[in-house]
Design a binder for these strands. Structure first.
Length: 258
DNA sequence: ATTGAGACCTGTCGGC
DNA sequence: TGCCGACAGGTCTCAA
């Protein structure tokens, strides 16, 4: 999409998680995409009109890209179609409709409610043990629940929260504040957790870049979705357990994660 | 202010 | 084979 113009925009089904913004089609058509970036789990397309297109895939959303003609007949879950001047036809498909799209006026992207309270990007230098410890210092919630709080660290999801805690050998059940001293300085556990988050995300990105393995289900997770199976940590011998926290599944090894 | 519970919507899978 | 409940990768709102 970067560098291409919206020749046509088709909003087949405007009732996504939030309704598409007013005049969605008119505001996009004819404008050019300057650049596509990302913030947390939001895709951010900067437009020549000055506006910014914010997109979220929710749980089940994805984009397909066809050139010339769509390869398939329209699916009932093809909600938005972008016909670009490059010839690319970009289709947003989302069965559950937890995804969203919004348009933000120039200079107000940072004020958007979805972005304004986000914490640091986990792969940025700003996200270090000091930042994590400070953010968790007064938190009575479980450590895993804190990792899913996008104000503490932006963009970590349910799978990689569990994965990072396993790498860091930390129990998802401990209180978040236990990785910081009373004064909010990082304990060794905060160092391990920060490094583990960066590690699992970098690995996942490298895997996703491998087009021979596009499905997350094809991934070989350390703990996620492995209830009852043996811990992969060498010589641990533990068995992966599943618990529910804040309505989400958490997987961990009670033997090596403390 | 922080926390937990429930809501949003549809598809898939396992058990009976 | 068919039905039914449980569960799914993420926010967002509401009430305590």
């Amino acid at each position: 999409m970067a560098g291409a113009r919206f020749d046509a925009v088709i909003a087949r089904r405007p009732d996504l998680r939030a309704p598409l913004p007013r005049d969605f089609v008119e505001r996009l058509t004819g404008t050019t995409v300057r650049a596509v970036t990302r913030r947390a789990k939001y895709l951010v397309a900067e437009l020549s009109s000055g506006e910014t297109l914010l997109m979220h895939l929710g749980m089940s959303g994805w984009f397909s890209v066809d050139h010339g003609e769509p390869s398939q007949a329209p699916d009932p879950h093809d909600h938005v179609v972008f016909e670009m001047s490059s010839g690319a036809i970009v289709t947003f498909n989302d069965p559950r409709r937890f995804g969203s799209m919004d348009l933000v006026a120039a200079g107000h992207v940072g004020d958007h409610p979805a972005l304004s309270a986000l914490g640091p990007e986990p792969l940025s230098p700003a996200f270090d043990a000091h930042a994590l410890a400070r953010a968790c210092k007064k938190k009575t919630i479980a450590l895993k629940v804190a990792l899913l709080d996008q104000r503490i660290v932006a963009g970590l999801g349910n799978i990689y929260a569990s994965e990072a805690l396993h790498v860091a050998r930390l129990s998802p059940l401990r209180r978040a504040s236990t990785i910081a001293t009373r004064t909010g300085l990082p304990r060794e556990s905060a160092d391990r957790l920060t490094a583990a988050i960066k590690k699992v995300l970098n690995e996942a990105i490298a895997r996703a870049a491998d087009t021979t393995n596009t499905s997350y289900r094809g991934a070989r997770f350390r703990v996620y979705d492995r209830e009852g199976e043996p811990c992969r940590r060498p010589r641990c011998g533990g068995t992966i357990k599943r618990v529910e926290q804040a309505g989400r599944s958490t997987f961990y090894c009670p033997r090596c994660q403390r």
